[in-house]
């Protein structure tokens, strides 16, 4: 699939390499972001699941120069990134949406818990707020659309699911995912650089407690 590129305002652009949650595709995005960040005029490149958002300095590069660079970089053989660290995260599965989510999925709550805590998830990206890791892919039996009306307040430590994704809210924030549990392990590490326990490419296993 050829890449698509669109501007986001006058100093950022979005490169889309695909539209699936896929480890290989995500690795290509991270590799492309890392390569773009080495170019002059690129301030920051953020790899999403299947996209790269490039923040650039229009005085030193341009939309079209980055588009050409992307096309060229994508022709190169992708590097294989190092496999990330494995984190074990203890979870109390008593979230306010556990019963409703199980109902919507046609599962018993215990099955939802078992299915959620079985896989080793990949950190596809960290974003939204400091330390929020987008983990996946979620088993197909657990996939629900986001809540129609997001919550204005989700407590820190909430373990949540949405679509093919799962994650832990590191801070009290608004949020539109379904809250199925909580953990006491801090995700946001204010005194560290980077200030996030989980980094792109890391792996995560949830343990019911």
């Amino acid at each position: 699939m050829p890449e698509k590129i669109w501007p986001i305002g006058d100093a950022a652009l979005l490169v889309e390499l695909g539209s699936r949650i896929d480890t290989a595709l995500n690795s290509r995005c991270h590799a492309l972001a890392a390569a773009l960040e080495k170019r002059s005029g690129v301030r920051e490149a953020f790899a999403g699941y299947s996209t790269v958002t490039v923040h650039y300095d229009p005085d030193r590069t341009s939309f079209s120069a980055i588009r050409s660079a992307v096309a060229k970089l994508l022709k190169e053989k992708p590097r294989v990134g190092p496999s990330g660290r494995l984190h074990r995260i203890p979870v109390t599965y008593d979230g306010p949406d556990l019963a409703e989510s199980a109902d919507l999925l046609g599962l018993a709550a215990a099955d939802l818990v078992r299915l959620h805590s079985q896989p080793i998830y990949r950190v596809f990206m960290v974003g939204f707020v400091p330390g929020f890791a987008y983990l996946g892919p979620l088993p197909p039996q657990l996939q629900l659309p986001r809540r129609r009306v997001p919550r204005t307040h989700v407590p820190a430590g909430s373990v949540a699911i949405a679509g093919e994704q799962t994650g832990v809210y590191p801070l009290p924030t608004p949020g539109g995912w379904h809250l199925i549990g909580r953990t006491s392990l801090p995700m946001f590490l204010a005194e560290n650089d980077p200030p996030s326990l989980l980094r792109p490419g890391d792996r995560v296993k949830f343990h019911p407690v």
């Binding site: 979005l14 953020f46 790899a47 999403g48 699941y49 790269v52 958002t53 974003g127 987008y134």
Partner: peptide, 9 residues
């Protein structure tokens, strides 16, 4: 379709 999360500005 619903989208996958992307980096914002």
């Amino acid at each position: 379709a619903e989208l996958l999360s992307i980096g914002l500005t």
